[in-house]
């Protein structure tokens, strides 16, 4: 190989490398909501927002660990979420100007919920379940924003996350989002599906973020949508999150049984709710009965799948 050919080759490699880097840099950048979407956000209604708030279960992560009663409305953060990537700590999202999100605009809030983007343009980790919240309607986000402004301001920042390299680099999450952030519904419902089932799909796939726990994850941490709600290994310990499709090992409950479980915590097999589902069930109990019935109708319509976790010996 002559010197010039070699030189050219090196040049090509360098150019390709730089171009690749630029492409990656471009692809991993923040993908904010458009100006029009933000401008079109309606004035929120706090009363309606409260319903969204319970459906979306913000207190499960952002209340102080162990808080009960009205104290769960103090969204001071501090709960540790252990994952294969490290330990995430839920931040303070109270209306405190300094330590919470009291200084945020509705647009800032919508970008966090629907795009996982912080006001400074950095990416949030998907431990904040925005991959589900991205399916929410902007009007519901506006209502939720209005309701959250009525909640108490609590001073005090929560500690930071404890993560290993390379997960400390937020920029890389831009690529993850290109794979997993999709506002479209997961389950296609036929034209004959009724309004109740559609309402249930919205509640489960969007605000309810049920798939975050009940759907198995790929090694990247993204939900395996082809095993939607099929159950998964628990994030901690050797337990499981049950299969809530009607497939083998899954739910054989009637729609009425499911709605009653979400209301009361009692299962039709003479047991009661437990584990991480307790907080979810308490939130569901605060919703109007029609919402629980809609969720039940949707769960009955989800394609049956065998258990999304390995059998124990």
């Amino acid at each position: 190989m002559s010197k010039t050919t070699l030189g050219r080759l090196v040049l090509v490699v360098v150019v390709l490398g730089v171009a690749g880097g630029l492409v990656l840099f471009y692809l991993s950048g923040p993908n904010r909501l458009s100006q029009e979407t933000v401008a079109a956000l309606p004035e929120g209604d706090a009363a309606r927002g409260e319903r969204v708030f319970w459906a979306a279960g913000c207190t499960s992560c952002h209340a102080r660990p162990g808080a009960e009663g009205d104290a769960i409305l103090e969204l001071a953060g501090g709960l540790e979420l252990k994952t294969p990537f490290g330990t995430f700590v839920a931040p303070n999202i109270s209306s405190d100007q300094q330590d919470g999100i009291g200084g945020w605009s509705a647009g800032d809030f919508a970008n966090a919920m629907l795009r996982g983007v912080a006001p400074d343009g950095s990416h949030y980790y998907p431990a904040f379940p925005y991959a589900s919240y991205a399916r929410m309607r902007p009007a519901d986000i506006a209502d939720l924003y209005a309701f959250m402004r009525t909640l108490p301001a609590v001073p005090g920042a929560a500690p930071g996350h404890v993560l290993g390299f390379p997960f400390t680099i937020r920029r890389g999450l831009g690529l993850w989002k290109r794979l997993y952030l999709d506002p479209e519904p997961v389950i296609a419902l036929g034209p004959d599906a009724d309004d109740k089932t559609r309402a249930g799909r919205y509640l489960v796939e969007g605000p309810g973020h049920c798939g975050e726990c009940h759907t198995p994850r790929a090694f990247t941490g993204g939900s395996k949508t082809n095993e939607w709600l099929a159950g998964a290994a628990a994030a901690e310990g050797d337990g499981i999150v049950p299969n809530i499709t009607a497939g083998e090992g899954g739910l054989s409950w009637s729609a009425g049984d499911i709605a009653y479980y979400l209301e009361s915590g009692f299962t039709p097999d003479f047991d009661t709710v437990g584990g991480a589902m307790v907080a979810v069930q308490k939130n569901m109990a605060r919703l109007p009965a029609e919402d629980r019935e809609a969720i039940a109708a949707y769960l009955k319509a989800v394609p049956p799948r065998p258990n999304g976790y390995p059998a124990r010996d």
């Binding site: 628990a234 499981i240 915590g265 009661t272 437990g274 584990g275 069930q281």
Partner: peptide, 17 residues
């Protein structure tokens, strides 16, 4: 009654199958 059942199962029991 149910609050007692769920409250204890929340922290002290984990489903295994």
């Amino acid at each position: 009654i149910g609050q007692n059942c769920g409250g204890c199962h929340e922290n002290y029991r984990m489903k295994k199958n």
